[in-house]
């Protein structure tokens, strides 16, 4: 359960550098299978367009999972994440050719005396903010 980042080494305002996560249709097909969410808006373009979407969109939970990966890679262990929540503010549109990029960055915006910190994530795809209120409580070493 060991986090690798030390509580003493971060301050309110410490920034976690941005990373880019690439998403293509194959990722969404794999995620559909692994999660059990087979809604065709995540893999069939004609269906997505028929319900008013611009194209196939990523599962919100796929996007949230990339934020989770960002957090656990930073902290060093999945057990360090005490709480994690997001609001889905815009879909990640995933074209057949080329897919999409998801850029995630973070900032420590609260440091607590109990060994935890609050991290707020920013997640963008294209010019859209795809998550808001994306916050995690992380227990550091």
């Amino acid at each position: 359960m060991a986090a690798q980042v030390k509580h003493a080494d971060v301050e309110t305002g410490t920034e976690i550098p941005a990373r880019v996560f690439h998403v293509d249709r194959a990722n969404l097909v794999m995620y559909a299978g692994a999660s059990g969410d087979f809604n065709p808006i995540h893999w069939r373009e004609s269906f997505a367009r028929s319900v008013g979407l611009p194209d196939v969109i990523a599962h919100g939970m796929f996007t949230m999972a990339q934020g989770g990966r960002f957090l656990t890679d930073w902290a060093g262990d999945p057990g360090a994440v005490v709480a994690y929540g997001v609001r889905f503010s815009a879909p990640v549109v995933v074209p057949d050719e080329g897919g999409a990029d998801l850029e995630i960055s973070g900032v420590v915006d609260e440091k607590h005396d109990d060994g935890t910190v609050r991290v707020t994530l920013t997640a963008r795809s294209g010019d859209q903010k795809v998550l808001t209120r994306a916050r995690a409580t992380v227990r550091l070493a």
Partner: peptide, 16 residues
């Protein structure tokens, strides 16, 4: 269900 979108999601963990 056809009109449903996922608005928010949160998890509070005791352990993984």
């Amino acid at each position: 269900y056809a009109m449903v979108v996922h608005g928010e999601q949160s998890f509070a963990y005791e352990r993984p």
